[in-house]
Design a protein around this nucleic acid. Structure first.
Lengths: 407, 407
DNA sequence: GATTTTTTTCTCGACAGTCGAGAAATTTAG
DNA sequence: CTAAATTTCTCGACTGTCGAGAAAAAAATC
């Protein structure tokens, strides 16, 4: 359903546009903003004057003029315009980061997680405590926190910040919105971790390729298996999605997965699954909860020395991943695949299986093998994805919810 | 990448909006347009005056006033504003339809197709001849044909009207753009057939549910297997895609498919595949090119009488479909599935397998079985999808390419 | 038949937004 | 100290939407 358009909407969209180029390129002069946005100089004047009056951006202090002519005055976001709290939930810890409106990290700490399984309620309490703690440490007033951006592995609702399924809590849902609402008036968003990795990689790619960038998938290998897809939308920015890839069916009536179903991709390619096949444990035994990476390193070493069984375990994992990716590609357009996560250290062992698994499908035989690259630093990408996403959400909210001081 | 907005864009979008409500609801009065679009009466006056001057819409002749007050004047599209040719390519014929700007069918005929395999070049020539023929029959000038909307089974390029892979021509690509360009200046679009079915069903659904409609998948069963997905986009209308579902990998190293790959879904669920398993022919024999439906009806009759082998063939087909659908659902949100095509007559035999196949995946166990409905009249839906899509493309093109007579 | 009521369409002035052109500001070069 | 260069700011023109009320036209009422 289309919806009506008006002149105020035009101003809103152009204001968001100005803020977004400021995000992408840092402090900019009037002229540069005009160049990037293709808006006329007069319009830039009007918009920036409004944003400045509303204390969202500010003129930077004069810098030594480096050329002839009137010196430029750079415009940048006001750091104290608002704050963002990033919460990254991983299997063994929760990391809290406080970030200002300009994207600068102000404070950060991690808290260990107890692994008690019946702990969804306790976990939520711990997150609430963590949020209050980071707020307290920095002496920022709670109203200044505009957004809480949370990420976790697992399946996330597409419209509300609800964790529908996670490796740790299973089907015990966690609704962060209602958990934080009385205490916080900040907006709460929740994203799948690998989706953020994909978003960050997509943004980097768009920086380089510009309009040529079309789409990209990120595959995260670790205890569990995650996938994020970024596609360039028709008009408005990027479309991202985080499917339930790790628990897509690999083989009917296959190995038992942590989730209780048989034959998931993760039941072949998760760390615990590789361990299970390497030790030739029957595929229907209940998988180990956690697998120390050192343990897997030993198996990998043996596989590299030429031992058949451990090598076969990695190969099976690769096959499951390759088949799954080929199925994903059957449902989307052709796109490059970036592999991240701790599992990348075994890529040499997985590679052959992945490629063979990919090659078993019609689409890959027809279009050829997709480009596969290995990308390290998953942690950094997750945080980068949080910032990209969260700060542009804040920009939009600020503008749409009426620029304060404009009336 | 965001892009700048301007007042002219506002007018464009609102003009398209007016045309689209006229499409959806037929001839409307000034007041009604204002109600549907939520634009003010003054704006409607301005826009409709412009469209009328440009000979895109017209005031309908006075109808007997049916109430107090000044009688309404209804506005409607001018039939002769432009024309659309719909080309539906099916396995045994090509149907040509000429439609006016108001969506009314003016002329239609079908032409048999010869099944010679090396016939891509000849086929293109036949299509060109068919297009000229329908034009000639109706005495409409070629410049008045604004759009040629083509559909086929198979895989279609997402940006250009190129048939990348089809059941008949295989990987022999057909570029309709370049095939028709010298002769026709009309825009050419090409869509997968099942995608149009999904689009039509989505539009119907949106009529009923309004904003509650989220997404829907259409599964077409026949000689080949097709899938179309419609999702409600963030803001602008619907997002539709037609994945290569029939040739998604069902089982590694499985039965041989028409496409030459092993283990495609179609190699289990296509008509020829059901025939093959019912006759207990080895799964690696090259499949029959065409299977008369009567043949399959016989097998179905036997299966319904309780014979094991034919019943098993349908069950295997159902399992392949169910597994495939479950994989699709792992990569998208939960959505209802509409089953169409000639294969629906065997739904009673397929059903159990489909449901079992769906149930083998984590996502379905967690979210529950998706709603499955059987929808007849695939042919009508294909044409309806063509009209929905093509006419709104025309509306947009007319408005965006500058309203003639506005200057 | 004239007048009032009702409903719809049309028109006018107010307001918001963008744009181009040129004025104003401010620094470097000579 | 003046001219050139460069950036920012300002003004009037144009386009768009909106609300209010005028104009149109038919039915109801007196």
């Amino acid at each position: 359903m289309l919806t009506k358009s008006s002149t105020e909407l035009v101003r809103q969209r152009n204001s968001v546009l100005v803020l977004s180029v400021l995000r992408r390129h840092g402090a900019l002069a009037h002229t540069e903003i005009s160049d990037f946005t293709r808006l006329s100089s007069a319009t830039i004047s009007a918009i920036t004057a409004e944003l400045e009056k509303a204390q969202i951006i500010e003129k930077s202090e004069q810098q030594p003029a480096s050329g002839r002519g009137r010196p430029r005055v750079l415009l940048r976001q006001r750091r104290d315009c608002g704050y963002l709290i990033v919460v990254i939930i991983s299997s063994d810890a929760v990391q809290y980061s406080l970030v200002d409106y300009a994207g600068k990290l102000i404070d950060r700490f991690s808290e260990e997680r107890s692994h008690d399984p019946a702990g969804a309620v306790r976990f939520v309490a711990a997150v609430r405590a963590g949020l209050l703690r980071i707020l307290d440490r920095s002496k920022i007033s709670q109203e200044k926190v505009l957004l809480i951006s949370i990420s976790s592995k697992g399946l996330v609702d597409s419209t509300e910040p609800v964790l529908v399924w996670s490796p740790i809590f299973g089907s015990e849902q966690i609704d962060f919105e209602s958990a934080l609402r009385p205490e916080w008036q900040a907006k709460v968003i929740l994203d799948n971790e690998t989706l953020l990795v994909a978003a960050a990689l997509g943004a980097r790619e768009e920086m380089v390729k510009g309009a040529d960038f079309r789409s990209l998938a990120a595959l995260s290998l670790g205890h569990s298996v995650g996938l994020g897809i970024v596609r360039r939308g028709n008009q408005t920015g990027q479309e991202i999605s985080a499917p339930n890839f790790g628990h897509m069916l690999h083989m009917a009536n296959g190995g038992l997965c942590r989730c209780g179903t048989r034959g998931c991709i993760e039941a072949y390619a998760g760390f615990y699954a590789i361990l299970r096949s390497a030790f030739e444990v029957p595929l229907d035994t209940i998988p180990a909860k956690f697998v120390p990476v050192a343990e897997l390193d030993k198996i990998a070493a043996k596989a590299r020395q030429g031992h058949r069984v451990p090598a076969f375990a990695f190969r099976q994992a690769g096959l499951a991943l390759g088949n799954g990716l080929s199925r994903m590609l059957s449902l989307t357009e052709r796109m490059p695949i970036a592999i991240t996560g701790p599992g990348t250290r075994y890529y040499d062992l997985l590679r052959q299986g992945i490629e063979e698994g990919l090659g078993q499908s019609h689409i890959v035989r027809m279009e050829g093998m997709p480009e596969i690259r290995v990308v390290a630093d998953e942690q950094i990408l997750v945080f980068e994805g949080h910032l990209n996403r969260a700060l542009s959400v804040i920009d939009e909210d600020i503008v749409v919810s009426g620029i304060p001081g404009a009336d």
